[in-house]
């Protein structure tokens, strides 16, 4: 086996353990490449059966329209049930308060919507596309990551994980986050997408769109964008390395309009993919702080 086969085999093994150990698991589906890869792996893991998990999208309401179209097509193509938890609804119900100001995002609000949805649907395992190379707080995350009944992660009190034995035992009200592609890097994900020829939203390919230069990256124009006095909208050829809330997901200038070219471009990339996300720039421990509270 080469390294991609080995990573694939490991992820498939993990997904099958989830199926065997939990009553009501879901795949957290953001429409981004990592959750698309996890979904693809789930398809392979259970073939010729159907994927035995619904897809759950935590919808900030601030989406790239392309992401939503892609999500709907994928779910219906696979015959998977699609569940949606809406941040807008959490705001309307008064569960969370919208951030104010130019740098306001709905990213942090997703945690509440996510936890509420998991509780409401009695989900005992949420499968995510998180990778340990993404961010240093993730480097210590387990494959099977325990959450207490407040949905909180306690990084100092994690279960030891040895060999290929995964312990998903939990009490009522607690749940697990499981990360089948923990050991993959961004480069591995792209190489795998290319090898398997996996369909991904067009946003990942270089395309022309209206953007504004903010915080070191090209933020797409959208109905939610509030311009500052000296900011102006330009047309640029960009692509996105991650897809999140449209208000904070920055694109990079790029000519890479095929998978081949994207893989080449990523292999010489000088910045982390999350470097273009405003939510991670807030402090050096921004991710860890959010993760402790129950973020993805």
């Amino acid at each position: 086996m080469n390294y991609l086969d080995e990573l694939e085999s490991e992820a498939v093994y993990v997904l099958r353990e989830v199926y065997a150990q939990f009553d009501n698991p879901v795949i957290l589906f953001s429409g981004g490449k990592d959750s698309i890869v996890v979904t693809h792996l789930a398809k392979k893991a259970f073939y010729p059966s159907r994927i035995p998990f619904p897809l759950l999208h935590i919808d900030t309401g601030h989406n790239f329209p392309e992401t939503i179209a892609f999500r709907n097509d994928l779910a219906s193509g696979l015959g998977c049930k699609l569940l949606v938890g809406s941040v807008q609804e959490s705001i309307d119900k008064g569960r969370v308060v919208e951030e104010q100001g130019k740098l306001a995002t709905r990213n942090a609000l997703q945690t509440t919507t996510l936890l509420d949805t998991l509780e409401e649907l009695r989900i005992d395992c949420a499968i995510g596309g998180g990778r340990r190379d993404e961010e240093k707080a993730r480097a210590k995350e387990r494959f099977f990551s325990h959450r207490d009944d407040f949905g909180q992660w306690d990084p100092k009190n994690q279960r030891p994980e040895l060999w290929n034995v995964f312990n998903g035992r939990h009490f009522e009200g607690e749940h697990f986050r499981v990360f089948p592609i923990s050991n993959w890097t961004e480069m591995d994900v792209w190489n795998y997408i290319k090898r398997e020829n996996i369909a991904i939203p067009s946003l990942y390919y270089a395309h022309e769109r209206e953007v504004v230069w903010r915080n070191g990256s090209w933020i797409p124009n959208s109905e939610y964008l509030v311009l500052d006095g000296n900011e102006r909208i330009e047309r640029k050829k960009v692509r996105f390395r991650t897809l999140g809330d449209i208000t904070i997901t920055g694109g990079i200038l790029s000519e890479a309009d095929t998978l081949e070219k994207i893989v080449d471009e990523v292999s010489v990339m000088k910045e982390t993919e999350r470097g273009n996300r405003a939510d991670d720039k807030r402090s050096e421990t921004a991710m860890e702080d959010r993760k402790r509270q129950g973020y993805f």
Partner: peptide, 15 residues
């Protein structure tokens, strides 16, 4: 360093 942390790197020959 308290816990086990995982790191990744790749060379032209190996991951």
């Amino acid at each position: 360093t308290i816990d086990v942390a995982y790191r990744y790197f790749t060379t032209p020959n190996r991951k």
